[in-house]
Design a protein around this nucleic acid. Structure first.
Length: 330
DNA sequence: AACTGCCTCAACCGCTCTAGT
DNA sequence: GACTAGAGCGGTTGAGGCAGT
């Protein structure tokens, strides 16, 4: 049995607020305040509205100094940076933007900002695809075949990226046990692969005895790109269900051994490199880790976030997250 | 002018958190 | 500690507006 409703649904008006209702609510709150009890408020005023509805109307619309629409570039940057850092915690983001409500920011993100940025991503990948297609694709190879190859390759790199991020990023899933029950990126990838496998043959990342050459190659490149060295054998766990290696990556000796035998046959194409670059964006779009239960001080968290933004080429968005820690906003 | 599809955003829903008892 | 009620939050919905055909 669920909890009792907060109000009598049958006698409560829903839908858009009339100017009269707005005036009543605004006048009352400006004169008496909310009294710390939104549920009782509509009865006092004589409004046939749910208390929650009154609260929402006041906070999102009637409250003084509310700004609507017309987000500036700076506000865009703040929203992007914070979204990357903390995810969809709209109330926290709204707290950094005076006059903006969480609802407003949420709507703005979902309807415009996300599309704006994703559109940019799509444009760049589309452009790289076109240039590659001009140079390399044989006649008669259709787009679907190309996309299939692209997708399987992208999934491999997503898997690698998550693993590598686990070693690199102290806030990552693998290095933060507090995150474990919330979300498992490995499972997300596996689920994604499973669903895609319904339609196409995805090459699953494989254990060291039979690694996917392209995956290994790209992983090594990734290590090089990030000045990252595998110096010791890390704790190796294999998922019982899938056989997929989790919580670690291959050792340098494994990589060297394998690469000496097979790397000569598999050189990453320009398209793979270009796609790898674009995957930096994908990572943070898929970065849904829940930091709500994290431990540790916010300053170090923000510092990590800032570094992460820099790492992913987002530092130019122009907002210094460190400001937030200085003001103690998060 | 009529139709259709897309976009925006105010409002709702249902869940979690928190304070009081 | 258990329970309850209100506050707060994020995800989702749907009405209205707009642009394209």
């Amino acid at each position: 049995m669920g909890r009792a409703p907060c109000c009598d649904k049958a006698n409560v008006k829903k839908g858009p607020w009339s100017p009269e209702e707005d005036a009543k609510l605004k006048a009352y709150i400006e004169k008496y305040g909310t009294g710390g009890n939104w549920i009782a408020l509509p009865q006092k005023i004589g409004l046939r509205r749910c208390g929650k509805s009154c609260r929402l109307r006041w906070l999102n619309y009637l409250r003084p100094n509310i700004k609507h629409g017309g987000f500036t570039e700076e506000e865009d940057s703040i929203i992007c940076n914070l979204y990357i850092s903390i995810g969809s915690r709209w109330s926290v983001i709204a707290a950094q933007l005076p006059g903006r409500t969480d609802n407003d920011i949420k709507n703005y993100w979902n309807t415009r900002l996300k599309k704006k940025l994703l559109g940019r991503h799509k444009q760049s990948t589309h452009a790289s695809r076109l240039s590659i297609a001009d140079d390399q694709s044989p006649k008669g190879v259709d787009d679907n075949a190309y996309l299939q190859n692209l997708s399987s390759s992208a999934l491999e790199r997503l898997q690698l990226h998550v693993q590598l991020q686990g070693l690199q990023n102290p806030f990552s899933f693998y290095n933060n046990p507090a995150l474990w029950p919330k979300l498992n990126p490995q499972k997300m990838i596996q689920n994604l692969q499973y669903s895609l496998n319904e339609n196409q043959n995805i090459i699953m990342p494989q254990a060291p005895h039979s690694p996917n050459p392209t995956a290994v190659r790209l992983q090594q490149e990734y290590c090089t790109m990030n000045n990252f060295k595998v110096t010791e054998q890390l704790n190796t766990n294999t998922d019982i269900d899938t056989g997929v290696k989790t919580g670690s990556t291959y050792t340098q000796s494994e990589l060297d051994d394998f690469l000496s035998k097979e790397a000569a046959n598999v050189q990453p194409t320009e398209s793979q490199i270009a796609e790898f670059d674009c995957f930096r964006n994908v990572e943070w779009w898929s970065n849904e880790f829940d930091y709500s239960s994290r431990s540790g001080d916010s300053a170090s968290f923000l510092h990590q976030s800032e570094e992460m933004c820099q790492e992913y080429g987002l530092g130019t968005l122009g907002y210094n997250l460190q400001n937030l820690s200085q003001t103690g906003s998060i």
